[in-house]
């Protein structure tokens, strides 16, 4: 377990360094839902190259790293109904709230943004309640 925490801290430092690089050089917020959402709904057409390059790195580097160490496991559920419901909730929710774990969580909290803190409290509380209900009460996940 402590090994997991050390890897968590080290991985977290890499995530924060990535966000700091993107902010200090490109002047932008490293928020995954905003970067993807702006491409999908067409609101960021003029930035497609910059955003596409970021998503390419986000996809390709872990793909190569995971391949190099012999694969990685996501343990994602095989229940398609749960996956579809979850994907829709995450897609709609992050675009309504204008941010997810990276935008509100990492980038918002680090500048003591009230919106970032409130969003994080709500998504962690909702996530915790969802796991309790769907896992322990209803046994669906």
């Amino acid at each position: 377990m402590p090994m997991d925490w050390i890897l968590g801290l080290f991985g977290g430092l890499l995530i924060g360094t990535a966000a700091a690089l993107y902010l200090l050089v490109s002047g932008r917020i490293l928020g995954a839902s905003g970067i993807i959402g702006g491409l999908v709904d067409g609101s960021a057409k003029h930035e497609w190259a910059e955003r596409g390059a970021l998503l390419a790195g986000l996809f390709a580097v872990p793909a190569i790293a995971a391949f190099a160490v012999g694969g990685s496991e996501t343990h994602v559920t095989e229940n398609w109904a749960v996956l579809i419901a979850a994907g829709l909730l995450v897609g709609i929710g992050t675009r309504l709230a204008n941010g997810c774990t990276s935008g509100h969580g990492v980038c918002g909290i680090s500048r003591l943004s009230l919106r970032g803190i409130v969003a994080t409290v709500f998504y962690i509380a909702a996530g915790g309640l969802t796991v309790v209900l769907f896992k322990h009460v209803w046994g669906i996940i």
Binding site: V82, A85, A86, G87, L88, L89, V90, G91, I92, G93, T94, R95, L96, A97, N98, C100, T101, H104, V118, A119, T120, F122, Y123, I124, A125, A126, G127, G128, L129, T130, V131, F134, I141
Partner: peptide, 11 residues
């Protein structure tokens, strides 16, 4: 939005 996101994240 954050509540919906949290539900999907938990699921």
């Amino acid at each position: 939005g954050s509540t919906m996101f949290g539900m999907g994240w938990g699921l």
